[in-house]
Design a protein around this nucleic acid. Structure first.
Lengths: 142, 142
DNA sequence: TTGTTGTAGTTAACGCGTTAATTACATGTG
DNA sequence: CACATGTAATTAACGCGTTAACTACAACAA
């Protein structure tokens, strides 16, 4: 059956929900001149150290063409470094730089506050339930 | 508490879930040379007939600058018509045109099949549950 | 070695999201 | 009326998503 109104349309609901959540994080990122996608890339590198471009794109949920642009931007600001992989001239290895790690650290407290606030307002149990459903939807449809 | 991995990060989960769902609809829209946003605008106009730009942007979840571009594209293909509101020269009134209505009708059967398939695979009860949680998240955070 | 096939990244083109600035018109105040 | 303020829509600028095309390098076979 077709959704009779957009509010009960799954794609629309997912879009709005994401907008609502990201609205809380956007000001923080904007204040440090980092886009949402750049932030995801930095976080992955921060957790993993050095990662090859393909794996980085996958883990940060960014498409290869976007990653190319993001790398340029982050490298220009000395947040990351870029090197060719030894043994395979096609591959590129990205590594977090001190300035990038510093940015992650600087934003962590604020991130935690926002996360905690969402969890408190929405309810921890329902948040887990929502994450379970989303995870299942992703696996079932992906 | 900060999510320890991206899979349990709410923004990331919402992004992936939406990607997974939209992947089912994208080929249909691409086959008719309509973007996701153009499709949303058309659907709103199809349901409501004539709508002013501001309300249309709101109901289709599109920002005003995007709507301006979308209107140009849809008007160029004679899917909609654009007129100034009588009594207020600033406002713009959009109306669905026959070609636009025809596109909606042409895609409806396929839409239904996709929706039904998602509902069947994910489970109708869990779908309702997910929509409830999303709605609540939107209201609580928006 | 040469040619083919495959893979990793990049570039290009187009559309949308986002924010800020701008234009056109409306409304209110003096 | 003139002026300031407010509102609707557009334009501009920049970045990302998406797809396709392209470059560079690797692997393999003849």
């Amino acid at each position: 059956m077709l959704p009779e109104n957009t509010r009960r349309s799954l794609p629309m609901a997912l879009l709005h929900a994401r907008e609502a959540v990201m609205a809380r994080f956007r000001p923080m990122l904007a204040a440090h001149d980092v886009t949402e996608q750049q932030w995801r890339v930095l976080r992955v590198l921060s957790e993993a150290g050095s990662v090859e471009a393909t794996e980085l794109a996958d883990r940060a949920s960014v498409l290869p063409p976007s990653l190319t642009r993001i790398i340029k931007a982050l490298e220009g600001r000395k947040f990351i470094t870029r090197n060719k992989a030894e043994g395979d001239g096609r591959r590129v290895v990205l590594t977090i730089a001190p300035a990038g790690a510093a940015l992650i650290d600087a934003l962590s407290p604020e991130r935690r506050i926002i996360y905690d606030d969402i969890e408190r307002r929405f309810g921890q149990e329902r948040l887990e339930q929502l994450l379970d459903l989303l995870e299942s939807l992703i696996d079932g449809e992906g």
